[in-house]
């Protein structure tokens, strides 16, 4: 079995695991991680395609590689935004429950809108 194919199969597994994680997990942080797994799998597929497209003395096709570099940075930005949303949610829930925000107590009441 060739190297790129192995990584292609690993990418397929990452996509499957991530998809299941996004749908089945209840905790927000795990969902974000799972979503990133899907992304990692898709990026890896690009890498496999790039490797198979090796030509002109290059180890791989530079176009999909450049797309993946862009994708990684965008995925990071999206993850950071998701983390900020999760933190804000936790702060609002803690405020609604009347506990200090580091207390990590599950909110009994629905989150209170501040504005």
């Amino acid at each position: 079995m060739s190297g790129p194919l192995l990584y292609g199969l690993a990418a397929a597994a990452l996509i499957g695991l991530g998809l299941h994680g996004v749908l089945a997990h209840a905790a927000p942080l795990r969902r974000v991680l799972a979503f990133n797994l899907v992304g990692a799998g898709v990026f890896l597929l690009f890498g496999v395609g790039a490797r198979r497209g090796a030509a002109a003395g290059l180890p791989g096709d530079p176009v999909p590689q450049a797309l993946v570099i862009t994708g990684i940075v965008v995925a990071f930005a999206a993850t950071a935004l998701a983390m900020a949303l999760i933190r804000r949610l936790a702060i609002l829930r803690a405020a609604a429950a009347g506990t200090p925000e580091e207390g990590a107590a599950p909110a009994a009441a629905p989150p209170r809108e501040t504005r």
Binding site: S2, P4, L5, G8, L9, A11, A12, A13, I15, G16, L17, L19, H20, L23, G41, L45, V48, G49, R52, G53, A54, A55, A56, G57, L58, G60, D61, P62, V63
Partner: peptide
């Protein structure tokens, strides 16, 4: 369902053309 998606992707990867169409020459 997730396993089916993964299997589908795996089949596509295994069946994709190798060598793949490439823009490497144009990029160089």
């Amino acid at each position: 369902a997730a396993a089916l998606v993964a299997a589908g992707v795996a089949v596509i990867v295994a069946g994709a053309p190798d060598p793949a169409p490439s823009l490497a020459a144009a990029a160089v």
